[in-house]
Design a binder for these strands. Structure first.
Length: 298
DNA sequence: AGCCAGGTGTACA
DNA sequence: TGTACACATGGC
């Protein structure tokens, strides 16, 4: 038990790991995980130690190898919980599919992406910072900014001639000079927002745990009190990090684009029309949004 | 070249 | 409560 190098997780009903890989592999500029030959690699940290894990499917089960280290029982627990959260291994997708069956937008999407869980961002700082980086710029540029931030200021592990990274911690981020980020083409606003959030998290004023004790409406209020966090970002974080299935970032332009395509419209739907869909999708708004995002890939 | 990009804060009626 | 505009730069 104490010296295990591999862990096995049963795959949930209706879940297809291949769909997780399809989504996670959507951008080749991604720097916080790597996909290679159907294997998913990610660097994690627990108890000040680094763990490079490899996740793959074998005999209808999910296997987690730790490549660089030997986690103890407590560390394995952390790793397994992280993976289950990240890859959405605890949701009963069958319930969503039952709901989606009679919906004209969702039914075809479920047909195309059957077995896809909602890929999450378990770390609050990562969810918030990725949302802020992505605000109002195209995704390609957002990935570029994130890569610069992670590669210059995060933690690096070389393994088998390949670099793996950890996002800078809030503590590390709080002391990055503004000019350094400015040089890497972060806007003044993004720098200010990111560093303030880093400060709130490192001082413990804000935490995932404290948010999880609140109701969704209260979480939204708490998050939008932070400068740089509007309703889009709050809902993005509720959806990807806090895993609130009713979260729905209604201003999202990708969502608008996907709906336009799914409904064969000439132009993007009006916000009031989207609001109707949102109500119709209660209590699965986050999954509806995620499947719509998925439909934009490629 | 010009519009758009996984928005938000601020100003002002 | 509602609209206009700055931010700030890349992608296509």
């Amino acid at each position: 038990m104490e010296s295990m190098q591999q862990w096995t997780i049963p795959l949930p009903n209706n879940y297809r790991f291949k769909e997780s890989l399809n989504f996670l592999g959507r951008n080749d500029q991604e720097c916080l995980h790597r996909i290679h030959h159907g294997h998913l690699y990610k660097l994690l940290t627990c108890d000040q130690a680094l763990f490079l894990i490899k996740i793959f499917e074998e005999k209808k089960e999910l296997k987690i190898d730790c490549l660089n280290n030997t986690p103890n029982g407590h560390q394995w627990q952390f790793i397994v919980e992280y993976v289950a959260d990240w890859l959405d291994l605890t949701t009963d997708l069958g319930k969503f599919y039952q709901f989606a069956e009679k919906d004209p937008v969702l039914a075809p999407l479920v047909g195309s992406y059957f077995g896809l869980g909602l890929m999450g961002i378990p770390e609050l700082f990562e969810a918030l910072s990725w949302a802020i980086i992505g605000q109002q710029i195209n995704l390609a540029f957002a990935y570029k900014l994130k890569r610069r931030w992670v590669e210059n200021f995060g933690t690096k592990l070389m393994f088998d001639n390949q670099a793996y990274y950890l996002l800078p911690t809030p503590q590390q981020s709080a002391v990055i000079p503004d000019e350094a980020l400015k040089q890497w083409q972060f806007s003044r606003q993004k720098i200010k927002y990111l560093k303030e959030i880093a400060r709130l998290l490192s001082e413990g004023v804000l935490s995932k745990k404290s948010l999880q004790e609140l109701q969704p409406a209260e979480i939204e209020k708490r998050l939008t009190r932070i400068k740089g966090v509007g309703t889009w970002t709050a809902h993005y974080v509720m959806m990807k990090c806090l895993r609130i299935p009713t979260a729905f970032p209604i201003q999202d332009v990708g969502l608008h684009q996907a709906l336009k395509v799914c409904l064969s419209l000439d132009q993007k739907p009006a916000i009031d029309d989207i609001r109707q869909w949102e109500q119709r999708w209660e209590p699965w708004q986050a999954y509806a949004c995620f499947y719509l995002w998925r439909s934009l890939i490629r």
